[in-house]
Amino acid sequence: MTLLAADDSAACYSLVENRWICGSYLSDYRSEIVDATVQHVWITLVAVTIGLLIAVPLAVFARSHLSVEASVLGSTTILYTIPSLAMFAILLPFTGISVSAVIIGLVLYSLSILVRNTIAGLRAVPADAVESALGLGYGRAGLLLKIELPLALPVIMAGLRVATVSTVALTTVGAILGFGGLGNLLYDGVQKDFKAQVLVASVLCVALAVVFDVLLVAVQRMLTPWARART
């Protein structure tokens, strides 16, 4: 901290000094940092939300059709093998240079994780619980919404946490199209040899992943009060 205090000129991020830790970078570049973080957050949120909205119905449909399940799991495994840079680039002819290419790519990655976990979660619902519900007169929709999905929730949430944390990290690669959130600062920083910017963007990326993860754990505790009562 004494280093920072001793430096009262605004030039600690200039090319001459080029310090890693530089307070005046934070204040002088504040709006850029905030913009990049906001972009990062909304790209992640949109991608994971769309992924979840597609994954759950897809998993519910796939588990009762074995051939569909095999092809869904097979194709999501293949998708996951394709490196992110190639994924965003391959979408370019369809979307042009736009945020859509990044979001579609991220949705496809999150799908691979979410579909798999949702199917696994639904499959792990105890047969006794399903039978009891049927005996109590639950219909198919009631069974799914009130019994199966709530009981599958811990496994689905585990998948959602993995998908969200991975998406925060993968969003940075969107910088290739100019829509990478904090990745834009990284891309710009490496070209300009801008140490303060590179460090701040990296730290914020990891911090975002941690914050999202903590929030999701809190949501899970809220949604499954029975699990909390037991432990």
């Binding site: 944390v165 925060v168 990290a169 990284l186 920083g189 990296s202």
Partner: peptide, 18 residues
């Protein structure tokens, strides 16, 4: 779990600049 949260791009940039 930690590895997943750290973007590969950030590590590459930090190493390349650092």
């Amino acid at each position: 779990n930690v590895g997943r949260a750290i973007p590969t791009f950030a590590v590459l940039v930090l190493l390349s600049v650092g």
